[in-house]
Lab assay of single mutants.
Amino acid sequence: EEKRQVKQVAKEKLLEQSPNSKVQVRRVQKQGNTIRVELELRTNGKKENYTVEVERQGNTWTVKRITRT
């Protein structure tokens, strides 16, 4: 359940930055209360990979860091 929520948060964050792209989740890793989500962003056939680190704060998820990989 929490992985599902985190995927959603990570996707939304990337789509905010580039709204007309397609996002696909590649991998989800958990480390303590930080969850790392690896995503693939496609814009006009151009692929970019991103890693989004999401942290739990109380009962909400906040995006800590977005890295292009």
Rank of each mutant, 00 (worst) to 15 (best):
E2M: 06
K64F: 06
G58W: 03
R56N: 03
V63K: 00
K13N: 03
S18H: 15
T51R: 05
W61T: 06
I35K: 00
T60I: 13
R56K: 14
I66T: 05
V23H: 01
E40M: 08
R68G: 04
R56H: 06
V23M: 04
E53D: 09
Q57I: 15
R36Q: 09
K22F: 12
I66Q: 01
V25P: 02
K46S: 10
K64I: 15
S18V: 11
Q31W: 12
L39D: 00
S18E: 10
E2Y: 02
P19C: 05
L14W: 03
L15K: 07
T69S: 10
T51F: 09
V28R: 01
K3L: 15
K13T: 10
K13G: 07
N44A: 10
K47N: 07
R36I: 15
K11H: 04
V23L: 05
R4V: 07
V23W: 03
S18L: 14
R56D: 02
I66Y: 03
I35Q: 02
K47R: 12
K7T: 15
Q8F: 02
K64H: 04
N59S: 08
R42I: 15
T60C: 06
V52N: 00
K11M: 14
T34F: 09
V63I: 07
K13H: 09
E40Y: 08
Q5Y: 08
N59D: 13
Q57G: 04
G32D: 05
V52K: 00
V63T: 02
Q8Y: 02
V52A: 05
T69F: 05
P19D: 03
Q5T: 12
L39T: 02
R4G: 06
Q29S: 15
W61D: 03
K3M: 15
N44G: 09
V25E: 01
R27M: 07
Y50I: 06
R36T: 13
T34W: 08
K46I: 12
K46A: 08
N49H: 13
V54F: 13
R4I: 07
K3A: 15
V52C: 03
K30G: 12
Q17C: 10
V9H: 05
K47A: 10
T67Y: 13
G32P: 02
E2A: 09
G32T: 02
S21F: 04
E40K: 04
K30S: 14
Y50D: 00
Q8T: 08
V54S: 00
A10S: 04
E12V: 06
W61G: 02
R26V: 15
G45F: 06
T62G: 08
E40H: 05
L15Q: 06
T34C: 07
G45T: 07
V63G: 00
R56F: 12
L14F: 04
V9Q: 06
Q31K: 11
T67R: 09
R42T: 15
L14Q: 01
G58Y: 04
P19K: 04
Q24W: 14
K3I: 15
V52Y: 01
T67K: 07
V28S: 02
Q5L: 11
E1Q: 09
L41T: 06
V52H: 00
L14T: 02
G32W: 04
W61M: 09
L39G: 01
L14M: 12
V54I: 13
Q57V: 15
T69I: 11
Q17K: 11
V23T: 02
E40N: 03
A10P: 01
N33A: 10
A10R: 01
N59G: 13
E2G: 06
E38K: 07
R42K: 08
N59C: 05
K30D: 10
G32L: 04
T67S: 08
R27I: 07
R27N: 09
N59A: 09
V52G: 00
E2P: 05
T67V: 12
V28Y: 13
E2N: 08
V9C: 06
E2K: 03
K30I: 15
K22C: 08
E40P: 00
T67M: 11
P19R: 04
E1G: 08
L15F: 04
R36L: 15
L15G: 03
T34S: 08
E16L: 12
S18P: 02
S21R: 02
E12Q: 12
Q24R: 14
Q57D: 14
E1A: 11
Q17H: 13
S18A: 13
E12I: 09
R27D: 05
T69Y: 07
P19N: 03
V25T: 03
S18R: 10
L41D: 01
K13L: 06
K3Q: 14
N33P: 07
E38W: 11
R26W: 04
V28P: 01
E38R: 07
V52F: 02
V23Q: 01
V28H: 02
V9M: 10
E1N: 06
I66F: 03
Q57A: 11
T67C: 08
E12C: 07
R27W: 12
K3E: 15
I66P: 01
N20Y: 03
L15Y: 06
V25D: 00
R42Q: 11
P19Y: 01
G45H: 07
K22N: 10
N20V: 06
K3Y: 15
P19W: 02
K11I: 15
I35T: 10
R26I: 15
N20G: 13
V6W: 05
G32C: 04
E38I: 13
T51I: 14
Q8V: 07
K22W: 12
L15V: 05
L41H: 02
T69A: 10
S21T: 05
G58F: 05
S18K: 11
N59K: 09
L41N: 01
T67D: 07
N49F: 14
E48G: 03
T60H: 14
G58I: 02
V28G: 01
N20P: 02
E40W: 09
V9W: 02
W61E: 02
K11T: 12
N44W: 06
K47F: 12
L15E: 05
T60L: 09
K47G: 04
R27K: 11
R26T: 13
N59Q: 10
Y50M: 03
V52M: 05
E12L: 05
E38D: 11
Q29P: 00
N20M: 07
T69E: 12
V37A: 01
V54R: 00
R56W: 15
T67H: 09
R42A: 08
Q5M: 14
V63W: 01
V6I: 14
E48R: 07
V52Q: 00
W61Q: 04
K64T: 14
Q31H: 15
E2C: 08
R68F: 06
Y50E: 00
V63C: 03
Q17L: 15
K22Y: 11
E53F: 11
K47H: 13
V54T: 01
V9I: 15
E1P: 05
R56Q: 07
Q24I: 15
K13F: 11
T51P: 00
K7P: 04
E38N: 06
T62S: 08
G32V: 03
A10D: 01
Q5P: 03
Q8G: 05
R68H: 13
V28C: 06
K64N: 05
Q24N: 11
E48D: 06
R65F: 11
Q8R: 12
E1V: 06
K7W: 15
G58L: 04
Q8H: 09
Q5K: 09
K64R: 11
G58P: 01
R42G: 03
V37K: 00
T34K: 07
T60F: 11
G32K: 04
I35A: 08
R56C: 08
L14I: 09
Q31R: 11
R42V: 15
Q24L: 14
